[in-house]
Design a protein around this nucleic acid. Structure first.
Lengths: 202, 202
DNA sequence: TTTTGATTTGACCAGTTGGTCAAAGCGACG
DNA sequence: CGTCGCTTTGACCAACTGGTCAAATCAAAA
């Protein structure tokens, strides 16, 4: 196991390669479906060499989840209480949809974890995620009270943004199967824009 | 292996027990995460006995998917071209949401399959599901042309119904973690009703 | 060049997995 | 009761899994 101080150039490179390969495999197969061998070969390392950088399969998985979590929640974090309400919310939707298009693996990684009952990040959800959502829900409630957007249940509004946008990443295969030739991300932005505009315009 | 003709009372009972146990396990763990041992013990049979009724783990999984598929698509099938458009669509939403509440395991079973790239029901999606959706999309397009609902992209409308309703089954843990005490299915029906009413009212 | 620590590997291990098989048990019908 | 086909099981297996370890190799500072 490499020491904790000042990672080598090689350490950085190999850790990055492992994380990327792990994202590929875990997001496609879930935790139990993924194998260390597959991650190792995809990252160009032997299995013992991979386990020289990460203590265990679970350690890789946890490192991945942790690394992606902040990135994943950033758009919600950026929701500005002092901004124009509809503009803020539509911007949030747009950014989440872009993330589904540009980072579908990250989306599916979380999807797997949560569908299985969030056995490894459950506590984080009930603590950090809940706190963040509650905070933003309060902002939305304020906007509603001020008559700046139409009245809706704030929490469910956020759920609907998550589900509508992440659907295009998590269920990509289904969406494309049903659409045939058409690119999902051609019409989706306008559709969601329209949906939330009609929902939220007072 | 039991013969194909006229299943015994015992065959019926055991097959049913296996299917139910398999639904429990597959929906929680996905295909690769599930083990035959777990399904066997949950259904009260020994592993060799289970494999006397189903040729393989995959055979159980496929039988499950096939059995649930019709049930799963029934609500969309029932969308009546001759009904009142908004009423039909809101009814579809309501029924899908009830299914998420009453049959979350079935929802998660499909979710697992599709997130992993639908390796086993991909063809069914591109053929049967696509055909059904295209048919109903045409109905919706007709309603829009007649000015009976507001203009929206029909396919994406259907995607949004799927994602919004199934989210409450597939991501149940997250939803409950964020909501805390509150029951998701208390406010969800009204929320979705409002959302689609505002979206679709001309 | 030598040394020292970082890096890599082949061989190996114990536990789990899906699946097999011959033999034993059971139930209904004559 | 006896028989015959359905049902159940214990013992077993080969492949795979996550993980270990001692030894070999490599890189860079001295």
């Amino acid at each position: 196991m490499p020491k904790d101080r000042t990672p080598t150039r090689i350490q950085k490179k190999n850790r990055a390669a492992i994380m990327d390969a792990a994202l590929e495999v875990f997001s496609a197969q879930g935790f139990r479906g993924a194998t260390v061998d597959e991650i190792a070969s995809l990252s160009g390392l032997s299995k013992p060499n991979l386990l020289y950088y990460f203590a265990s399969k679970e350690a890789i998985y946890l490192a991945l989840l942790e690394r992606q979590l902040d990135t994943w929640l950033a758009p919600l974090h950026d929701l500005d209480p002092d901004g124009e309400p509809l503009e803020q919310l539509l911007g949030y939707v747009r950014r989440k949809l872009e993330m589904s298009r540009d980072f579908p693996r990250e989306s599916r990684l979380f999807a797997h974890e949560i569908i299985q009952g969030a056995p490894r990040i459950g506590p984080v959800l009930s603590r950090d995620l809940k706190a963040l959502v509650d905070e933003k829900a309060a902002v939305i409630r304020g906007w509603i009270a001020a008559g700046r957007i139409a009245p809706v249940h704030p929490h469910h509004l956020i759920f609907s943004i998550w589900s509508l946008t992440q659907h295009y990443a998590d269920f990509d295969v289904q969406v494309r199967a049903v659409l045939g030739q058409e690119d999902p991300f051609e019409a989706a932005p306008d559709y969601l824009d329209t949906l939330f505009t009609r929902l939220l315009t007072p």
